[in-house]
Nucleic acid binder design. Sequence first.
DNA 1: ATTTGACTCGCACACTGTACGAGTCAAATC
DNA 2: GATTTGACTCGTACAGTGTGCGAGTCAAAT
Lengths: 239, 239
Amino acid sequence: MAGKEKAPTSVWTRPERRRREQPTLSRDQIVDAALDLLDAEGLAGLSMRRLGTRLNAGATSVYWHVANKDELLELALDRVMAEVRVPDPEQEGWRAAATGYARSVRALIHRHPWTVTLFAGGPMLGPNATRTLDEILAVFEHAGFTGHDLEYAWSTLIDYVIGVAGNEASWHTGQPGVTAEEWMESLGPYLEGMDAQHPRVAAHIREIWAKDYQNVLEERFAFGLECVLNGLATRTPTP
Amino acid sequence: MAGKEKAPTSVWTRPERRRREQPTLSRDQIVDAALDLLDAEGLAGLSMRRLGTRLNAGATSVYWHVANKDELLELALDRVMAEVRVPDPEQEGWRAAATGYARSVRALIHRHPWTVTLFAGGPMLGPNATRTLDEILAVFEHAGFTGHDLEYAWSTLIDYVIGVAGNEASWHTGQPGVTAEEWMESLGPYLEGMDAQHPRVAAHIREIWAKDYQNVLEERFAFGLECVLNGLATRTPTP
DNA sequence: ATTTGACTCGCACACTGTACGAGTCAAATC
DNA sequence: GATTTGACTCGTACAGTGTGCGAGTCAAAT
């Protein structure tokens, strides 16, 4: 009589509260778990409840350590920013250093595709982002850029890199487990119509999504990066 | 006895079903309304329920015309793609045409910041996107690019434009109604710590978020675009 | 007059982020 | 040793989300 069966919990069925066996939750621990979820299943894979269960914690426990989900994402973003490497321009020259930086950022985005959306979410202020920014600014300073041009040069490079890498990454994310070839096949009738109306576009599509799709991506990035660096070189005060 | 007061609806209180006064919902009508919401309040402002009420329709009526929300967004995206203009390369030369295209896309992103995320969501197949792609490919063909280089050249430009414009747009979206100056002030203590550890970054921040922030954005884009085009020019087969 | 097929929509389900307040514990204080 | 404090956890609740389903409504075709 006392207990409805459908009641979510009852004093009798519910286990005792968990003892404090682990020290406590910590920010680092939380960010670790969040990164696991993000890398495994993308932005959509991270929900506060899932994060909670992964930490063997209640759904809302995280909120004591972190103001809200956005803040958590900021922390996660800065954590992965630690992976960016900037070669020393003194030794390698500004162009090699910039190339290394660009490739490093692209690789980061490939490893953590969920960062793409976040990169654009306003200026990044975390310690790792700051350190990286310092280093890459030093590179362009070494190249001779000063004042506004210094930031313009950096911005040109990073905006390009985020653009390409974002594009590349979202492909993986969008259709998980579909190869470029399979996708091309699914496009069959659409492509035929295209041949009639826009042969240029049809040819373009066929050329890109060929079987060596990965290779095309690499070539394309190499091409674009060289363009941007060549362009920057035309603006260098000290050639 | 017959009616519980808390019942969501009752036969007696509920109004008769709406007569078919308007012809029906149409795709165009739906996309129109979706665009209103998107432009006014961004991606987060569009929910199927709000869309329904805006159309004087039930929350799920839209689902007969459109498979799901993603598909609706695809339609909306292609609709705004109609705003992109590509100047005629025969008359203006490829460089001017490419410039016009780039500025046009950037302006589109500024007008519709919610497109940023979507741009990266796989290749766009809608009619307007296709038409635009055809035209811009013609521009680079006119410049002498062929085969893979043709797509690499276009990709370099569009990736850069999406990169910058995405960055610029998300600033507006992120902190609505906060000027660059106000934001700088809120950064006070943070900046002081920065002066000590990363003076280069501190200087950089101060230089960028000055009072002529808008002007900085314009200059930066002009700089970057010129770089990219200069870089592309170094790859042109027929100079 | 009846059938058909185009279209609408209420309800339900499983899920989201997070505010709130009650609860639990370890260490500091008396 | 008893008490207080403050750090931390978490169940519940609320208002929202996208969308499947099935019943319902209507105009046109038969």
